[in-house]
Every structure is written in structure tokens, then in C-alpha cells.
Design a protein around this nucleic acid. Sequence first.
DNA 1: TTCCAGGCCG
DNA 2: CGGCCTGGAA
Length: 363
Amino acid sequence: MICPAKPDSVEFSEKILHFYKQNKRELPWRENPEPYKIWLSEIIMQQTRIAQGTKYYLNLLEKYPTVFDLAKAEEQEILYHWQGLGYYSRARNLHATAKVISEKYAGKFPHTYKELKNLKGIGDYTASIILSVCFDEAIPAVDGNVLRVIARIFGIEEAVNKTDGAKKIKTIVSDKISRTQPGDFNQALMDFGAMICTPKSPQCIQCPFVPECFALQHNAIDRLPLKIKNKPPEELFLYYFVFTDKQNRTAIKKRQKNIWKGLFEFPSVISPKKLNEKNLFSQFHKNYPDVPSFELSPIPPYQKHLLSHKKLHIAFLEISGTFTPTDNYILVNQQDLSRYPFPIVLKKYIEKKQGNLLFTDKQ
DNA sequence: TTCCAGGCCG
DNA sequence: CGGCCTGGAA
């Protein structure tokens, strides 16, 4: 007896591929998908909106047309081009992997999941998308969009940001994935999630899965996918000391660890609690005993800056005086600050300050 | 003003 | 499983 193919499996894949054919987003790295471009774009697009990431993709591809160019570059230069994109470990890992690809693999990306995953910055999702899009391997690439789409259509009640829920979803996609066009299938699911099955107010009116969608039938669109909330971020007070000496120089230093690792910052005092001027001043001199004493002006208003796990309150103290460089501090001319990679809050502060300087110069 | 989305690493 | 960043939406 002949066993008919599971109708729903064929149908799911056909529906999503049909959607993709009609609605595929035209993205620069999709035009002619080489592994280098797919990899570069995927690393950039992790945790990033397409609109923001595309600018960085085009710029980085222009600066580094091949994996060899990227491998040859200085890490600091890559971080410079990465400024403002956040999650800077992606840029450091990008560089490390470019070196491995160009040296160990002669510039060609490996074709196995295991080898790809061993490369820094390439996790399950990115390995899978490279394999399916570039090498036609039928392996599911599950990103946040896919988690949402599958959780809704198939009624997955487990939290999708926990191992159980994610595993369940991966199993479903493994079953549904098109064996003939796995790359298109994976990208189709993500586009569908980004365009139709959106986090808030999804466009169910345009959805081809209305008849079978669990969430729609059970009035669970707002409930699914379930996510367990993280604990609220810890508060942190960050005091930056922006020195201007007689030669118009400012002290900066590369961060060695934790937040913004690899980027530059000013001498600082960090405290879990708000400090008054007296405590701040003594804390500063404890951190930098060699720096001559100076007049401390009142603490200016704090700027809030939210990270996923920390709530920063930042104050910039502008000091007229000399900073004696200790450990890795360097003295940089004010107008050259923009050559160094800074976190976005500092970059904006510097730009504003330089704008002010230009303005006062013209007076 | 707050809330939230989005993969990888150690 | 906690740490890592930013900008856009609510």
C-alpha cells in the first residue's frame, strides 16, 4: 500500500515558499549569496534591525570587500566602523573568524555545521543559515521571528526563550523544512515573521495560515510566544572625567573588559550608588593617585543609558587641567577624538562638544 | 518615559 | 543562564 505524503507538511512548506516568492525582501546580500556576504550580513543583523544594519553592511563590505581584507584590518579599525551598532563582541569575533577563514581555510567557508559552529560568533542560527542558503542543506535556522511564527501557528505554550520551548520549535521546523529549497524556506519564515506575523498587531488578514493557526483560533495572539521576563537591570552610576589640558588634549583609554570592551572611554569613577561631589572627588583620586588635584565643578545632570542588563546614569565632568597618563591612558587632541571608536553615548557627547567648540571658535 | 526585540559566549 | 548594546515603538 502506498503511503501518501503528509499533506500538512507539504502544504506548510509550499505556503511559506509561495509567500516568499511574492513578498521576498530585496536585500543587498541576497542578490548573489556568497558565504562571505551571507556571514557578514548575518553577524551584523543579529540583534539588529534591517534598516539600521543595512547601512553598516554596505559600508563594511566596501571597506572590506573580501574576507582577506577583513582579516588584515586592525581590530580597532573594525570597531570604529562598528560604532553605534552595539554588541561589540560581534565585531571582535568577526575579525577573529576572518583570520581563521583566510589562514586555516584559505578564504573559503567550511561546509559542515561542526566547523562553522567552532568559528567565533557563529552559533546555531548563523551556522544553519549559511548551510541552508549557501550550501542547500536542509537544516532549520531558528531566529526570533521563527520562534514567534511557529509558537503561534502550532500553539507552543512553553517559553520560547527557554531550552524546552526552543527545542520543540526546532523539531517542528526540521519536520516542515523544504528539502529542495531549504535556504528560501528559512528566509521565508523570517521574512514572514518580520512582515506579517509581527510581535505586535500581526497582519492576520494577509496570513495564509489562518485556517490552521492555533493562536488565531484560540485568541492567543497576544499570549504567544510566551517569554519569561529577565530581572530588571541593575543601576550603575558612571562618572566620566573629560580633561582639557593646555595643549587641548584629553585622556582616553581602551576598555579591557565587560561593557564596551575594546572601545575607548575617559577616566572614570563607577559606583552602584549616586555620589555627591565630595565622594566623587575622593574616589577619583583613589583611582588615579598620580593625577594632580583640580577644581571640581558641580555634577551636571545625569544622562540615562539603558543596556539589556544595566541601567546607566552617566555624568560628564569637564576638567580644565592635566591628566598624568597612568597604565594605558593616552592623550589625544580634542579634534582627533572622532578617530577612535567610542560607545554611542560617548560618541554623541563628543560630537556635541565639538559642535560647541566650532560654534565658540566662530564667535 | 519605559518597554522591547534580537544570537552568542563563557 | 547571565552578560552583552542600541534605537524604535508604546
